[in-house]
Structures are given as C-alpha cells and as structure tokens.
C-alpha cells in the first residue's frame, strides 16, 4: 500500500458517501444515472469474485464489501425506493449501456493477463469501469445544470483513478516485477473521459458559478 493508492481509495469512498448522502438526505436521485450505477454494480461483482477465496487484508475485504454493498444499495433505491424512484428521469438516462457491457466482455475475452475465469472477469471489470461513467456524463450534459452533490460525486469519482495512476507510476519505479498495463491503460482512458468535466468544474469553481456542462 502507498499513499497514492490510499488517497485513491479514500477519494473513491468519499464519492460513494457523497452519493449516498445526496440520495438519502434529499430522497432524490435527480441528475444521477441509474445506468452508471448498474455498471458500477457489475464492475464490483465481476472484480471481487475472489472476495471469499483470497484474503489480502481486513482493509481490502472491508472496502470490497463497502463498494459492492453501496453500489447495489443505490441501484435498489433508484429502482424500488418509493420516494427516490419518482425522481429518476428515465427519459434523460438513455445511454445504451448494455453495449458497453458486451463490448468490454468481448475485449476481456481477447485481452487479459491469463485466460482463466477470474482473470477474464477481472479484465472485464477493469475495462467496464473505464467507460461506466459515460451514461452519467451524457446525462449531465443533457440535464444542463448540475446540483452540487452530484457534481462533487462525479469529481471525486474521476479523481480517484487519477490517484491510482500515480500509484502505478510509484509502483513501477519501486517494485521490480510490477506490470499492470491493463489497469494502467484503462485507468488513463477512464481519467481522460473526465477531462472536460474537470475543466468545466474548475471554471465554475473559479467563477464561483453554477456548474453547467455545454450540451
């Protein structure tokens, strides 16, 4: 564990806490893409198949349970919670995310570290996470104004993989046999997808204005 990875995990945790706060405090999921939440649920379920077979550390296991639990809880809320589901706007959350699932799985069948059930699902989860934010970013562009908590949620979610990139650079220089090129390339793509969001977020913060993404 290094400071970059720990900062990344904490930033990821904060993004989830901000999302949970928004949904539970406001009893509303306006501006949140259910499809992105479903994709994250698939990402964590596919990535943590080794949850009960490989014990790395208490921290690792607890964080995996938090990530799986929170993503499934949000999906449940947006689909079934009596009050929350009313604020879900199906008409703006129209990204066809099943293509992302199919495409990433196909890619994982061809590009993986080892052709085993777990490694193919692990690579699938890495590729899917890189594109999971697309429905959310498209929804924000469609819905124009972005409320503060949603904006902070996306900001932290984008920043966490940026910390992981620093972690991979650090590990590359400090560990001899370190080679996580699947994670690195996907992490770079994932962080790059947030580039324009980060830009408009910075502009709105500098001008102390409401965050607006151009349509």
């Amino acid at each position: 564990m290094n400071i970059f990875r720990f900062a990344g995990d904490m930033t990821h945790l904060i993004s989830i806490l901000v999302l949970l706060l928004k949904v539970y405090a406001t009893k509303s999921c306006s501006g949140i893409s259910l499809k992105t939440q479903e994709l994250y649920g698939i990402v964590f379920l596919a990535r943590y198949l080794d949850l009960f077979t490989d014990f790395i550390s208490v921290y690792n296991t607890v964080m995996k349970l938090v990530f799986i639990g929170s993503s499934l809880a949000i999906v449940w809320c947006m689909r079934f919670h009596r009050v929350v589901k009313r604020s879900y706007d199906r008409d703006v959350d129209t990204f066809r995310h099943y293509f992302l699932v199919g495409g990433c799985f196909l890619l994982a069948l061809f590009v993986h570290e080892k052709f085993s059930f777990r490694e193919v699902f692990w690579a699938f989860s890495i590729y899917l996470e890189a594109v999971a934010i697309l429905p959310q970013l498209i929804l924000l562009q469609r819905s124009g104004n972005v409320d503060n908590l949603t904006g902070q949620y996306v900001l932290f979610l984008g920043a966490y993989r940026g910390f992981y990139i620093l972690n991979w650079i650090y590990r590359y220089f400090t560990e001899d046999q370190f080679s996580r090129w699947i994670s690195c390339v996907s992490g770079l793509v994932q962080t790059a997808l947030y580039a324009d969001f980060f830009y408009y977020y910075f502009i709105s913060w500098k001008n102390n204005a409401k965050l607006k993404l151009p349509a």
Binding site: D50, D54, I56, N60, N167, R180, S183
Partner: peptide
Amino acid sequence: SVDEDAHDEL
C-alpha cells in the same frame, strides 16, 4: 491464502 497473481488493488 494469497496466490501469487491475486490482485491486491481494489
């Protein structure tokens, strides 16, 4: 038990 190729990152 941690086999050698277990992914230690979240």
